[in-house]
Design a protein around this nucleic acid. Sequence first.
DNA 1: CCTATTTCAGATGGACTGAGATAC
DNA 2: CGTATCTCAGTCAATCTGAAATAG
Lengths: 145, 145
Amino acid sequence: MNVDDAPQRLRTLPSWLIGQLAVQARHAVDAELEPLGVRRSQYSLLASVEQFGPSSQVELSERSGLDRSDVVRWVDDLVGRGWLRRAPDPQDRRRNVISITARGRTTLRALDTRVSNAQRSLLATLSDAQQEQLIRLLRKALALG
Amino acid sequence: MNVDDAPQRLRTLPSWLIGQLAVQARHAVDAELEPLGVRRSQYSLLASVEQFGPSSQVELSERSGLDRSDVVRWVDDLVGRGWLRRAPDPQDRRRNVISITARGRTTLRALDTRVSNAQRSLLATLSDAQQEQLIRLLRKALALG
DNA sequence: CCTATTTCAGATGGACTGAGATAC
DNA sequence: CGTATCTCAGTCAATCTGAAATAG
């Protein structure tokens, strides 16, 4: 699609502009991750476990924004790749404790580089100051301190 | 999901912030349109036909951002509702000419109000000046004059 | 008995692909 | 002939729902 061909109604609509940029953002990140065979959900999960340490799957769901049932499937996958570990919680046997492996950390650092490249290509038309400004406004709109 | 619980890596990532706001944007618009039984795709199509006048389906696809095959299905639907009209193009019989009906125009105006409400709730945490600023930056990022 | 967590099976809507039919 | 348009059938990943199994 060519954004310039869209009708005025849409080209001036904040929700539409945000949606279009989100499409480009997804594509930029996916293009960087695809050669490594990694999806955005997997990056979110690795980042969540890495930052907060061993977590239950409900916690992972809240932090990553993934649905509880999708966390099940992706953790399955990431355990299979040797990037996460899943063990029953001895304190509360309803829960699993998900933790990151050494190889998971290494992978995450590689992904960080890729994801960071995607940001640059996504925001290439903005100056550094404008990028900062955009980030500030997005965070404010999301009520993120 | 609660955005505040996300890891630092994501909370500072432009593509992630954009994606999160896009989710909220979708929900805000959907919530406004749902009582009328209308989807965003339908609004995009009505807006495209209204602005540019009678169009082929390929043109509609380029302008609305919908895939050619989805245009087929949505035009079917909108014709069924009496909001669009589909006729063979006498100049080029491969094409259809899609045009908006009087009832379609009326509907579109009602949708405009709804969609506009959604923008206000989406950007409620921003001042008017900040909303303008955000729109400017989004358009620049999308390389939209 | 009620609630929380994990898991599964499947529904849903959106974006996309490939091929056939028709017309240029 | 090759190409453009419309149409259909169907895949695909992402999101979400409901209910079962287990444990607190």
